[in-house]
């Protein structure tokens, strides 16, 4: 059982704040570190892996500092995001070298098991330079597993894996989590983390935006106000009806440039609706349009990008 703690950690590079006053605790089981690209996930993983000191705060594994503590790597396995490996050697030799560097008593047996675990047996004799992205990812994973670590840090491990490999890796990580290992997986894809992690920590713009089980995170995301763009035959009448139904917090009529404000709005105008209860809104909207004889030309969610979801979580 191992607990990795991040205590009021900030990390800046010159004037750029990559991680801003983050406190988290990772215990046994699989935890997803979720956030868009540039959110500070890799910086956090690098600090947890002992490859970067915090500018302030502390990162500890069972109360022992991670930075400048080589002995800690007996307990930590790392799958970095960067692709570079020792390309001239075969997958087997590379994993074996990692086992020897750990000082394992039977490095060959550990290598065999790690390679079998990641399903790389067929390609183990080939030079790493000939590997596909998925094979490289599995070779990286084998090097991280070879010493049977208590803590496993994986930075975007699903990049480049095909669906079958993705499912297998998820099964493996879930099993390792159930065995009591502390498994931390960073990803920018919610669905990936949702399928895998019992707990999710959300990072946005270097800040710790949200924390909880995937249901809580999903709930936060679905309960946030959703913005819809609507084009209809009578935008003003539809706006009045939507506001009266109380399923939207704001409705804005957006006119095209140069258009007047007189009644008889052109079809180029749009309604921007901030729906507070999405389920109710999508149920009510067609009924309102039908009962008032208003034709709907377009109804589309305006801000479903992951970044906007994260931005909402940060702003809360």
């Amino acid at each position: 059982m191992a607990t990795l703690k991040i205590d009021t950690v900030s990390r800046w590079f010159g004037n750029v704040v990559a991680v801003n006053d983050v406190t988290m605790e990772f215990g046994p089981g699989v935890t997803g570190l979720l956030g868009p690209n540039g959110a500070g996930k890799s910086t956090l993983i690098n600090m947890m892996g002992g490859f970067l000191p915090p500018s302030s705060g502390a990162v500890t594994l069972d109360d022992a500092p991670v930075w400048r503590n080589e002995g800690i790597y007996r307990r930590i396995g790392l799958v970095p995001e960067r692709e570079a490996m020792y390309d001239g050697v075969s997958g087997y030799d590379f994993v074996l070298a990692n086992a020897k560097l750990h000082g394992l008593p039977d490095a060959a047996a550990a290598t065999k098991r790690a390679i079998e675990t990641v399903d790389l047996v067929e390609a183990q004799s080939r030079p790493i330079s000939t590997y596909s992205k998925g094979m490289r990812q599995r070779a990286k994973l084998a090097t991280a597993l070879v010493h049977d670590p208590q803590v496993l840090l994986l930075d975007e491990p699903f990049n480049g894996l095909d669906p079958r490999q993705r499912i297998h890796l998820m099964d493996l990580l879930r099993t390792m989590g159930k065995e009591g290992r502390t498994v931390i997986v960073s990803s920018h894809i919610l669905e990936e983390v949702e399928e895998l992690a019992s707990r999710i920590e959300v990072m946005v713009s270097g800040r710790h935006a949200a924390s909880g089980g995937f249901r809580e995170i999903r709930k936060l995301m679905t309960e946030r106000p959703h913005q819809y763009t609507i084009r209809s035959g009578d935008d003003r009448a539809l706006a009045s009806a939507i506001i009266a139904e109380r399923c939207a917090s704001a409705v804005q009529l957006v006119l095209p440039k140069g258009a007047g404000t007189a009644p008889g709005v052109s079809h180029d105008a749009t309604l921007q609706v901030q729906a507070t209860d999405v389920g109710e809104f999508v149920r009510v909207l067609p009924r309102l349009a039908l009962s008032r004889g208003i034709r709907l030309y377009e109804v589309s969610p305006a801000d479903e990008s992951l970044e906007s979801v994260f931005a909402y979580l940060v702003a809360r």
Binding site: V89, G103, A109, R113, L172
Partner: peptide, 27 residues
């Protein structure tokens, strides 16, 4: 991929020292 059975415990000393490491040299 399958779950990994536990491996033999590595040596107890925290850090591997000495003036020379053959694996580092080979790489």
């Amino acid at each position: 991929m399958s779950a990994q059975p536990p491996l033999a415990t590595p040596p107890k000393s925290e850090t591997i020292g000495g003036p020379f490491n053959l694996t580092v040299a080979q790489l």
